[in-house]
Design a protein around this nucleic acid. Structure first.
Length: 231
DNA sequence: ATCTCGATAGTCT
DNA sequence: GACTATCGAGATC
């Protein structure tokens, strides 16, 4: 399927009624990180609905020195040791949030970081939350059919974990939300009705922004997917 | 395209 | 007191 065909239908779509089940998150974390690619990040807030196709993930396991849970349970990382299928959202660098899905067995301390998504629905709302002016949003909406503009805009909105949290309004308040049921925040499987892009093979690369275990290739992207945080 | 750097505050030593 | 699963601006090539 070509990328231009990846158009989200009206919000009556199945993705509003469907969520990945608990058992999906219970599987081995590295597998979950790979399979979360192309799944749909769904966010319903009083402001409106926003949807993004997951395009970049990273796996973190408790026995991995780069993982927040590596040194055991603390108040901050407690959610990682809880039920798989819940959101683990944390604050970092004094100004950014990062969104993870808890994976593996309960009590294990694993999670998958969502590093980039392709916006599918709610471009205007995502843009406002990211601080774009009304004039800039209007200009981009008019040019959105141009591939280069669309990719550039998408990456400015959601090409990085901090950007996703700002665009999707994810903060401490959303920490611990159960992602396995449609509500204010959940993840839907890739739906054929929406269109599943064919971006080729899954690539593995070093995780970004860490200093430990830099040779563990647990960052996952799709070969020809332009909607990533970097090349 | 790739780099360096500063902002900023919660967490842990 | 040091570090951080980041971002954006500005410099440089």
């Amino acid at each position: 399927m070509k990328e231009a065909d990846l158009l989200l239908p009206e919000p009556t779509s199945d993705c509003l009624r469907t969520a990945l089940p608990r058992d999906f998150y219970r599987q081995e974390t590295v597998n979950a990180a790979r399979l979360l690619l192309n799944c749909l990040l769904m966010r319903n807030s009083p402001d409106g609905l926003t949807v993004g196709r997951i395009s970049e993930t990273e796996a973190y396991t408790q026995d991995d020195p780069a993982c927040h849970a590596y040194r055991g349970r603390t108040a901050r990382n407690a959610m990682m040791f809880g039920e798989p299928g819940r959101a683990y959202i944390y604050f970092t660098y004094g100004m950014h949030y990062c969104f993870n899905a808890v994976t593996g067995l309960e009590g294990q301390g694993d999670a998958v970081l969502i590093r980039a998504v392709e916006p599918l629905q709610g471009w205007e709302l995502l843009s406002r939350r990211r601080g774009l002016s009304d004039e800039e949003i209007a200009r981009l909406l008019a040019l959105k059919h141009e591939h280069k503009v669309r990719v550039r805009w998408a990456r400015a909105l959601c090409g990085g974990p901090g950007k996703i949290c700002q665009a999707f309004d994810l903060k401490q308040q959303q920490n611990g939300i159960d992602l396995t049921h449609p509500g204010e925040l959940w993840i839907a499987p890739p739906l054929p009705e929406i269109g599943v892009p064919d971006f080729g093979e899954i690539l593995s690369s070093p995780r970004i922004g860490i200093t430990q275990a830099v040779d563990t290739l647990w960052r996952f992207t799709l070969e020809n997917d332009p909607y990533t945080s970097r090349k």
